[in-house]
Design a protein around this nucleic acid. Sequence first.
DNA 1: GGGCGATATTTCGCATGCTAAAGAATCCCC
DNA 2: GGGGATTCTTTAGCATGCGAAATATCGCCC
Lengths: 164, 164
Amino acid sequence: MSPLEPELKDDVEEIIETIIYLYTESRRLTKELARRAQLTGPQLTVVKILESIDDLSLSELSERIRAQNSTVTGIIDRMEREGLVVRERSTEDRRVVKIRLTPKGADIAAAIPVEPMEMFRAALASLTKDEVRDLLRILGKLSKKVKTIIKRDAAHPRGGAAEE
Amino acid sequence: MSPLEPELKDDVEEIIETIIYLYTESRRLTKELARRAQLTGPQLTVVKILESIDDLSLSELSERIRAQNSTVTGIIDRMEREGLVVRERSTEDRRVVKIRLTPKGADIAAAIPVEPMEMFRAALASLTKDEVRDLLRILGKLSKKVKTIIKRDAAHPRGGAAEE
DNA sequence: GGGCGATATTTCGCATGCTAAAGAATCCCC
DNA sequence: GGGGATTCTTTAGCATGCGAAATATCGCCC
């Protein structure tokens, strides 16, 4: 189950480093792209999501951008202040707030041609088909394992995250 | 150069999703681990770095945790307030501030047995040697390509990040 | 039909995290 | 050896980002 040997330790470090690098770099680029349209990174993400899905509740939006509701409340506050989106109370369930792009918000979204993460996509295009397939398979296995560890850790939340 | 075909588009999405998942999850776990010692995530990281390297300048520390100096200034402010570290002006170069663990900080560091990212390491241990090697190779190729794209983009910073 | 637990959103307080600009100290070059 | 460019750190202002508690509403169950 654990064929990992000492000599591979550095490899492990490097894999972690690389994943962190790829993540932070893609985020930085999203931010830079957003800046050209006078938006912040998360605001660009929200605008692009609403462009294709108009009419999303705050909770649904939070889930999509992997943030807490309270975080998204703040983001939407500022976007509403800037006239990019509007809040609309749902008529079916008055607890729910629907977020919708304003014409101004839609214009800005349309004016930004590339998706966030486009850079990532371009980089992945330099890999061969087989490499993409391998990468996907291995990362999938990795994240499945992580999910298992987390589940076990949630059940016995007292040690570190990795004791055998 | 770009053998990526339409049918692989979903694979690309999934790879990106997985990398984001792995990154955010490892961060969340670091934070949870830190909480048990009354620390925040970055504070745990700093304490663990200083445990092995005592005597690091603020800039060096920033570089290690991939954050801006101004961010680290704030983190160190709060850690100093809590009595975890002290600032010492360097005698050789009086512009430099050395950060050092206090006995209290050292105790806390010693009391936390696992490294941040340990969960990651445990998950990687479920891969075979060959998989680790492949993953490392492919991620390396990927990040090299990203670096190239960034460099090109920095030279011509006007379009999106990925135009061909 | 009234109360009670569950769900959706907001508020509050705090800790990152960034950029730009200010403040110190050093370097370097004439 | 003096001054300007450079480097190290901090300050200021803002935008996430989180958890916990407060609010509002809904659903259900008796």
